[in-house]
């Protein structure tokens, strides 16, 4: 039981890393909280569902399409709202409200377009039968989702640490003003990060029917709560921190389900608070405590 809980927690945690990854990137670069993140995940789920239901497209192919399409969708959204938002006095806090509005719009449109019933893609599409790993059995769909998540984390890491624009992105993360002063095209860097963040949320959505059972237009709120826990436990802005946060979240959730299931949702929240109080910027974060 213990081994199973830990192993599936790690696999599940990989997926939750992906869920938090986009939110984290956007926060890290722009210092804005994308409250509509969970709703973008939902849109990704419905995109994959319809691509599968209408033309029988395999989710792995859908995920490439969703990545590209959502990135393209993210760019105009960035230029429409973010520069204006960042010009405001307290943009970090205002972003919460702005994206609350965006979330309402997305959920309303999704309800009109898709209805309210649960939707999903059969698990067998990603491979049949349970898989035996280290003496434990796990659904194949979980392993595939976790593998895709790991790949996404690796790519984001390479982007940030092995590419030129990634270096600029990190410069913006450290200090937006100084980056601006040193001649970096902050808006181009931010727009790219925003587009990638939205695309990652969409990607997480493609695999949500396998990891979360089913998708509805109302799922965004719960996804957000989990994503917040993951990125704060890790540390805002750093993809490796998100990975750590995702794994801790996954294992903690599964251990709670095993030993005190009715309290399972409490632990991630307590963990988040505890981590923040001990290390206010997350486990891998730099120190920036106020006063």
């Amino acid at each position: 039981m213990l081994a199973h809980a830990i192993l599936s927690g790690l696999v599940f945690g990989c997926y939750f890393t992906l869920v938090g990854l986009g939110l984290n990137l956007i926060f890290g670069v722009m210092r804005i909280v994308n409250l509509a993140h969970g709703d973008v995940v939902m849109l990704g789920a419905f995109a994959a569902f319809w691509l599968f239901a209408l033309i029988g497209l395999h989710p792995l192919i859908s995920s490439v399409i969703v990545l590209a399409a959502f990135a393209l969708l993210g760019l105009p959204v960035y230029y429409l709202v973010v520069p204006r938002l960042l010009a405001a006095r307290d943009s970090e806090m205002l972003s919460i409200i702005l994206f609350f509005g965006v979330q309402q719009i997305i959920e309303a449109l999704a309800t009109i377009a898709f209805g309210t019933s649960e939707r999903s893609i059969p698990g067998r599409v990603l491979g049949r039968g349970p898989l035996h790993v280290l003496g434990q059995t796990l659904p194949v769909a979980w392993i595939v989702s976790a593998a895709v998540s790991l790949l996404a984390v690796a790519l984001v890491y390479l982007y940030l640490y092995r590419s030129r624009v990634g270096t600029l992105t990190r410069a913006v993360m450290v200090s937006r003003d100084e980056a601006l002063a040193s001649g970096i095209d902050v808006h181009r860097v931010s727009a790219l990060a925003f587009a990638i963040g939205v695309a990652l949320a969409g990607l997480a959505g493609v695999f949500s029917p396998f990891m979360l059972g089913s998708a509805t237009p109302a799922m965004g709120g719960d996804v957000n709560l989990a994503a917040f826990a993951v990125i704060v436990i890790g540390s805002l802005g750093d993809p490796r921190g998100t990975m750590l946060g995702g794994l801790i979240y996954g294992v903690a959730l599964m251990l709670m389900q095993t030993y005190m299931s009715a309290w399972a949702n409490l632990l991630p929240n307590l963990l988040l608070i505890a981590v923040l109080l001990v290390r206010p910027t997350g486990l891998l974060g730099r120190q920036v405590r106020r006063a």
Binding site: A5, G9, M211, G213, D222, T258, S261, A264
Partner: peptide, 14 residues
């Protein structure tokens, strides 16, 4: 389990 529970693999094992 909380109503928001969306994965049961570990619970089924238990």
């Amino acid at each position: 389990v909380p109503t928001s529970t969306s994965n049961y693999a570990v619970l089924i094992d238990n």
